[in-house]
């Protein structure tokens, strides 16, 4: 079975700093990583391949340096990597991103064989919308399975798949037909350590690089800024809170005396709370 995993290279936002004066992101020296949520999708794809045979292709749309993320995915054991890169993709919102990725996915199907399963992560940590997966599914007419916690059953011959999906207030067990798009929930598996063989292969692999034209994209008006119905009107820093913190003096107090003054300060801020708590305590 041929499985494609869409993954994105993102700045390691734990290390992002905002310039205090200009309110701009200081990107210099910020390392990039594979979007952490996408690793759950990749691992699930690798497990399916190990069980059922076939290949895993990883796909990303991004600048040329996104190649690093793809190479990393190869070290985990992916078989093939496709980098979709073109200046016309700059400034894509989710609608434009899902358009470009869906065109590339169709092309991957033509060139490397049909793909009954496409995986994406739940969401990215920079775009953070969780909308690109559903967007791809809709454009390609794939049956959509989001927030999948577990793949229960997969019958390649019958073309059916059933999964546990995290829904509101419970778990849905869904059955559908392939081709499907699955967005994988976080924490559902643990990324393997790639083998030395994989690392060796990854270092030597050719990464397939496609421009918009290579991916069969002729309608550039659907790409990048032009193809994005949303525009960023302004970017600004969150406002600092006007009210200053009230520090509770701690000097010379025993811990119990300090606790008493913390409790008193809480009740002073929230006079109604004491009554709520007493009613709660009475109900116990």
């Amino acid at each position: 079975m041929h499985i494609v995993v869409c993954l994105k290279q993102v700045p390691d936002s734990a290390q992002i700093r905002v310039h205090p004066v200009t309110n701009t992101i200081m990107r210099q020296g910020v390392p990039t990583i594979i979007n952490p949520y996408d690793l759950f999708a990749l691992e699930e794809a690798l497990r399916l391949r190990d069980r059922l045979g076939g290949e895993v292709t990883v796909l990303t749309m991004g600048p040329p340096m996104a190649e690093d993320a793809l190479r990393k995915a190869l070290t985990f054991g992916a078989d093939r990597a496709v980098l979709l890169t073109d200046r016309s993709f700059a400034g894509s919102d989710t609608l434009a991103t899902s358009y470009a990725l869906s065109m590339a996915l169709a092309k991957i199907g033509e060139v490397f064989g049909p793909t009954p399963i496409v995986f994406t992560g739940k969401q990215t940590i920079d775009g953070d919308t969780a909308q690109v997966g559903p967007g791809i599914a809709k454009r390609l007419g794939l049956n959509q399975l989001t927030y999948v916690a577990r793949i229960c059953d997969l019958d390649p011959a019958a073309g059916t798949i059933s999964v546990e999906r995290r829904a509101e207030g419970g778990v849905q067990v869904l059955e559908t037909r392939m081709p499907v798009l699955i967005t994988m929930l976080e924490g559902t598996n643990e990324m393997r350590r790639g083998s030395l063989d994989d690392a060796y292969r990854a270092a030597r692999s050719q990464i397939v690089k496609w421009s918009a034209a290579d991916a069969g994209i002729t309608e550039l008006a659907k790409c990048g800024l032009k193809g994005s119905p949303t525009i960023v009107k302004k970017v600004f820093a969150p406002q600092a809170r006007a009210e200053k913190v009230q520090q509770i003096p701690t000097s010379d107090l025993s811990t119990d005396a300090l606790a008493a003054s913390v409790m008193a300060a809480i009740f002073q801020k929230q006079p109604a709370l004491e009554g709520d708590l007493l009613r709660f305590a009475a109900g116990q």
């Binding site: 700045p11 936002s13 734990a14 992002i16 700093r17 905002v18 309110n23 992101i25 940590i125 920079d126 953070d128 949303t230 525009i231 960023v232 009107k233 302004k234 970017v235 600004f236 820093a237 969150p238």
Partner: peptide, 9 residues
């Protein structure tokens, strides 16, 4: 960017 900034869209 993880809440470091806000943007209006």
């Amino acid at each position: 960017f993880g809440g470091s900034l806000l943007c209006t869209i």
